[in-house]
């Protein structure tokens, strides 16, 4: 009977522990994160064709980079460049916001690493991503 009580207590304590860990589910949605998502979503309608044509690709550190801008008409190249840097600025802020919203600013790097894999996994076939030293077509 006492053994039973003892194990019960241990089990209870494990459950308590699990509850603590599960509290960090990362699916937070602060106004800052919503704003970033909305801005990235709006930008994606412009960036989409550039992924498909190989003008930009997904980098292994969860950003995007210009792979070959020659397919973009000269007059649009400046805008294309600022599109890429604006996307990367948003992505930096997104990773940072998710980390801070969870009360763990030090997770920013881990979150970024997680995203790096997920962006590439979810990319459409035909898009380019960085692997090793070069670009690979998915």
């Amino acid at each position: 009977m006492k053994k039973f009580l003892l194990s019960l207590l241990v089990i209870v304590s494990i459950f308590t522990a699990n509850w603590v860990a599960a509290a960090a589910d990362l699916e937070v949605n602060t106004p800052a994160i919503s704003a970033l998502k909305a801005s990235m979503q709006a930008r994606h309608s412009q960036l989409g064709p550039f992924y498909s044509s190989g003008a930009v690709g997904l980098t292994k550190d969860a950003f995007i980079a210009i792979k070959d801008a020659t397919a973009v008409p000269l007059k649009d190249r400046g805008g294309f460049n600022s599109l890429v840097s604006a996307e990367n600025a948003d992505r930096t802020n997104l990773y940072k916001e998710i980390a801070t919203a969870n009360g763990h600013p030090e997770w920013q790097g881990d979150i970024q690493n997680t995203f790096a894999g997920r962006w590439i996994d979810k990319a459409q076939s035909g898009w380019f991503y960085q692997s090793g030293g070069g670009w690979v077509k998915k």
Binding site: G48, P49, Y51, S53, V72, K75, G79
Partner: peptide
């Protein structure tokens, strides 16, 4: 929404000079 198409002026970013 985004089909693989060549960028055309219409798709181009609006903030180009």
């Amino acid at each position: 929404a985004d089909k693989p198409v060549e960028p055309t002026p219409a798709d181009a970013p609006t903030d180009a000079p």
